[in-house]
Design a protein around this nucleic acid. Structure first.
Lengths: 210, 210
DNA sequence: CCGAAATCGGAGTTGACTCTCAAAATCTAG
DNA sequence: CTAGATTTTGAGAGTCAACTCCGATTTCGG
């Protein structure tokens, strides 16, 4: 009796069981179906029923896996944040704020993502205001995290305006570089494109202060 | 007969008539009711019926004035764009890109808006992903416009990467300065806060290039 | 084979947005 | 000022899709 004492607890489900594996497969099927359809006909023009049909599930099952339509695309973008912060803090003190951010973004983001998937997701996000909104909230979270990390690296207050502004500028540079790379058809290396963006920024800094 | 030949044409309605004035009044009533309600209980929690009731109109009348719920807030943000571009281009050649943008934004935006209204609208926008998405699209439009203006000022190609990046950095600096000012309770002068933001940016440029 | 968990299927809710038609309100001419 | 044309509004029904709920059924694990 009292099955909950003999059964698995929510926090520690078996990762290898048939059940868990099937759930993973279903989850992936839904994600894949959704991204495909979003790419084909756009986010707003795709209904839950469409996704369910292609993923071979009942419409109501969709919501067992994702709390809302938007969450299929925006799954845990904040997962990488702690690693990013650590990478920023661990940069040698000789790095300027912009160099630290550039290096941290290169190793924690550019090197860690699946470019193909990222490109498709980015395009889908750009196709709908709702998703753009969620994405800009995510970007805001990154900015706060980066700003904090920069401040800690120098032993400054979390709200230090220079750190805040450095994070703003670096992340918008980064974002634009990525977006430009995608808009230009993903030619060449993403890492190189990001580097080019930061180089352009530094060249502008020279112009502006001379 | 054939009244359309004797009546006003669509392109040139009388601006002073009773009719036109009442329409303007109704439009304002809707806008005011909407912004009030959005501020009170949030964008998503406000229905068209709520707005209609407070504005004393029928729900269906709402859509005769605004094509969608979002448009009550996001009315013609692009109206000021041509003036902004002209202001950028007309800046003396001795101005750097960042100085030109700073000055143009100060005179065409900071000096031209109603701060109270802008603050309320900004807060409402931040309260909903849909609106944030639309707003970031508007911001993107500004960026393109600013970038073009910068390029023309120097006789460069519209797609020049330095101009593009300068616009990116300047506008995100500007946006953050405004947001910070609002988050801090609108203490002091908005123009001064914007100037402080740009000063911080330039100080960072010095740090990064030394 | 038995109990737990996941799924199905379908009905139900909500709110944005559309459409229509008849009832005001407003304009212009005489 | 009045009559007739026109525009605007009100009221209500109707669509569509996200999201919720629930009872019945299937699938899985021991």
């Amino acid at each position: 009796m009292i099955p909950s004492e003999r059964m698995f607890h929510k926090g520690a489900p078996p990762t290898g069981g048939h059940r868990a594996r099937k759930k993973e497969r279903t989850r992936h099927a839904i994600e894949d179906a959704a991204i495909e359809l979003f790419s084909e006909r756009g986010y707003d023009a795709t209904t839950i029923d469409d996704i369910a049909e292609r993923a071979q599930i009942a419409p109501s099952t969709f919501f067992r896996y994702f709390p809302s339509k938007a969450d299929v695309i925006l799954g845990d973008q904040n997962e990488r944040l702690p690693a990013l912060q650590r990478a920023i803090i661990d940069r040698p003190a000789s790095d300027s704020a912009i160099d630290a951010l550039r290096a941290a973004l290169q190793e924690q983001w550019v090197a860690a993502i699946d470019p193909d998937r990222t490109v498709r997701i980015t395009q889908v996000i750009a196709s709908s205001p709702v998703l753009s909104g969620h994405a800009s909230a995510v970007g805001h979270g990154w900015q706060i995290a980066a700003s904090q990390a920069l401040a800690r690296r120098k032993g400054l207050d979390d709200a230090d305006q220079k750190c805040w502004m450095a994070a703003t500028v670096a992340l918008s540079t980064f974002g634009e570089a990525v977006k430009t790379w995608i808009d230009d058809g993903c030619e060449g290396d993403l890492a190189a494109a990001v580097d080019r963006g930061f180089d352009t920024l530094l060249a502008l800094c020279v112009e502006w202060t001379s």
